[in-house]
């Protein structure tokens, strides 16, 4: 299923909560194998946009597609028809998501957390799913924690399990929403290392982050959002070292 459309293609994406318009026309293209870092002040709509990409929020206007498929809608002539719940779920299955607060399933061990997607959604056999999950836990360095419940894991370990859980769906794209913001400083490194390895392996990633050093090192594109629009985007050098827009300069100054 290779096509030459970009992995994520957003044009004029809009989203409101009641009378509050949060996204006011987002334009963004993410190519295959690219790492895009989203930065911007609090409340600028970064999380909302990320959640729109895998249809946790439905968009109110504009165009948004992932891997050539519209998100949340089917096109019929001039109309966009809202997807059936089943189709929406099927499309989400190919998009991984990693949350700020990990959101590991609290009633399942690390291993069962990773197995959940393959078993419940991909309908894999238990044994095959267990092997896959073990491999993935090994990859994030947590093979020995397989039978531990999340409440006995450190934040960094939980986040690595969460990444393994996303990988278990063999996603074509992974979305990260401030994956290290809830971590103690000494645990940030281990999670960033896993993400760095993923990027090297060619995974397409959209990362909302405040880790400027990470963005500088790993990102192909850095996107600065403010007030529900993309203010500036370009290579890390362009955006982080020589920002053109005053708002970007102000923001970078404020985060140091």
């Amino acid at each position: 299923m290779t096509n030459n459309e970009p992995m994520v293609w957003a044009e004029g994406v809009m989203k409101s909560f009641g009378s509050l318009q949060v996204l006011k026309g987002i334009d963004l293209v993410v190519d295959r194998g690219q790492v895009v870092c989203l930065i911007g002040p609090s409340g600028s709509g970064k999380s909302t946009f990320l959640r729109c990409i895998n249809n946790l929020e439905t968009i109110d206007g504009g165009w948004l597609s992932v891997d050539g498929e519209l998100v949340g809608y089917n096109r019929e002539g001039d109309c966009l028809i809202e997807l059936r719940e089943k189709e929406a779920a099927a499309r989400r299955a190919h998009i991984g998501m990693v949350f700020q607060h990990f959101n590991l399933f609290a009633h399942k061990t690390a291993l069962k957390n990773v197995m959940e997607g393959p078993v419940a959604v991909r309908r894999m056999k238990k044994d095959a799913a267990r092997d896959l999950a073990m491999d993935l836990l090994d990859r994030v360095g947590l093979k020995d924690k397989a039978d531990v419940f999340p409440n006995r894991l450190s934040g960094g370990q939980q986040q690595r399990v969460a990444i393994a859980r996303a990988l278990a769906m063999e996603p074509k794209l992974i979305l990260f929403d401030e994956p290290t913001s809830a971590l103690d400083p000494e645990l940030v490194g281990e999670v960033l290392q896993v993400m760095r390895d993923l990027a090297k392996g060619g995974m397409t990633m959209v990362v909302v982050t405040h880790e400027m050093a990470f963005a500088r090192e790993v990102a192909d594109t850095v996107v600065f959002m403010d007030g529900g629009v993309v203010v500036e985007q370009g290579s890390p050098k362009e955006v982080l070292s020589a920002p053109k827009m005053a708002r970007t300069q102000d923001f970078l100054q404020s985060v140091g």
Partner: peptide, 17 residues
């Protein structure tokens, strides 16, 4: 917590699941 059902939705589970 809402994060639990959100994480489950994000890996492609249907509402009943």
């Amino acid at each position: 917590g809402q994060g639990q059902s959100e994480a489950a939705t994000a890996i492609g589970m249907r509402r009943l699941q």
